[in-house]
Amino acid sequence: MIDSLVIGGREISSRLFLGTGKFPSNRLIPEVVAASGVQVVTVALRRVDLDFEEENIAAYVPGDCILMPNTSGARNAEEAVRIARLAKAAGCGNWVKIEVITDNRYLLPDNYETIKATEILAAEGFTVLPYMSPDLMAAKRLAEAGAAAVMPLGAPIGSNRGLRTKEMIRILIEEISLPVIVDAGIGRPSEAAAAMEMGAAAVLVNTAIATASDPVAMARAFGRAVEAGRTAYLAGPGETRQYASASSPLTGFLRDE
């Protein structure tokens, strides 16, 4: 059985997506990519620090990766749209992770503005992956707006607190026909595996890898955990209960037919 993840018409080889923030050195990124096997890599767009020469992150991302700019910094739909258009014009391809945040304490996404931005960008031909709070109605609206996947958070960004929103994400997985990618909050490989066992299409991990003592080893661990979780999901859960049916109390009457 071929198990492929297709988003925006592209077949994705790895169900682990990597965020590139907070690494001690960008030079680690190629190694991290190689160790984990990731194919989708996120980057952000920022104003240049006018006084210092900075590195170009894109130069560290292997060429066969899909570069997915996020719209971090956007506080409403218009800003997110503007950032997405700039990133695309700058040669980033047509993938974009919509991220609209106005809450500076928990960094929780604004689903309403996210839906608006998704609608505009999907109509322009972007492959839109919106970062969202796991709310079923919002996810349905994102699907209607043309999102290519939905990316509910497991816990606040960078918190490493794990799948706190598990039940809500489970509902999205059951009810939404788009790929559900758990983004934010996953702190350990076991949590990534749990998300995959539950039926998530992929997970996006950044802080847990970037801030590990050994990011390359941690990336490898995450890559394997995601694969293990996916394999377990596909293998199907064992029968958890056996119904004894010796006496057929409910359907026995059919035997008289």
């Binding site: 049916s245 409910l250 359907t251």
Partner: peptide, 10 residues
């Protein structure tokens, strides 16, 4: 498997 299905349906 109608009986098994019936138990769960019920």
């Amino acid at each position: 498997f109608l009986e098994e299905m019936a138990l769960k349906a019920h």
